[in-house]
Amino acid sequence: MTFLFWILATLSVIGGLGMLLSRKAVHSALWLALTMMCLAVLYVAQSAVFLGTVQVIVYTGAVMMLFLFVLMLIGVSAADSLRESIRGQRPVAVLVAVALGATLIAAVGNALDFSVGLQAANAEYGGNVQGLAALMFGRYLIAFEATAALLITAALGATILAHRERLFPRQDQRTRSVERFRSGVHPGQRPSPGVYARHNAVDVPALLPDGSAVPDSIPGPLRARGTVREIDATATEEVLDRLVGGAASDTGGER
């Protein structure tokens, strides 16, 4: 047990330092995840199995993942401006940190003095999960429900903040398809360049059966730049001749 503690304690301190000292935000998040995992293993080792697993599911699996999502989508990097926009942030932060540290020390000291130990606590209701359930849905029911209400309010608030008034009616696949056919233009794809032409390069227009070029078959940027290749009428004739003539002679030969 002591052995496990020293390994995990070292790892969590390394994780905490890594989180503070990493240059990349994602690396910081990963170090923090390591600390969380170490704490979870410590909880399990001290027979608080429920707390340990829930720590991993909620903190490592959900909260940290949310952080990672935001970091990856927004892409915070070391090059970003570090100028603080909120005035007086540092002293307040120091104050809050000291208060939090004091609370933690007080809580741990309190636990050292008055606790009965996890073995006894687990034995009282016949198991770790049962004990937690008895406390949460018995003695601390109101606090539990209040926390639930707070969380739901926060979720609703986030939904409302992220809500955007819809300026245009929602376009789904169906309305888009109706729109496309009503507009009267050809609803399918445009012919690819080089169809029926002599080359299959992008700047060679597709040819209609009468030999004329289809301007739509050239990508817009090329048309705008004017780098569309002209169709050589005589060459088309020649190809047509060869194709028709060749086909005739082929079938003749087979017979």
Binding site: L30, M37, V44, V49, V56, I57, T60, F69, V129
Partner: peptide, 25 residues
């Protein structure tokens, strides 16, 4: 086996997701 082993599987699955999201990033 322990009293919350099904939750343990869920926890491990959520750690496994890290592999995917980190690979992507």
């Amino acid at each position: 086996d322990f009293p919350v082993s099904v939750l343990y599987i869920l926890a491990i699955a959520s750690v496994g997701i890290y592999g995917i999201v980190l690979a992507g990033w």
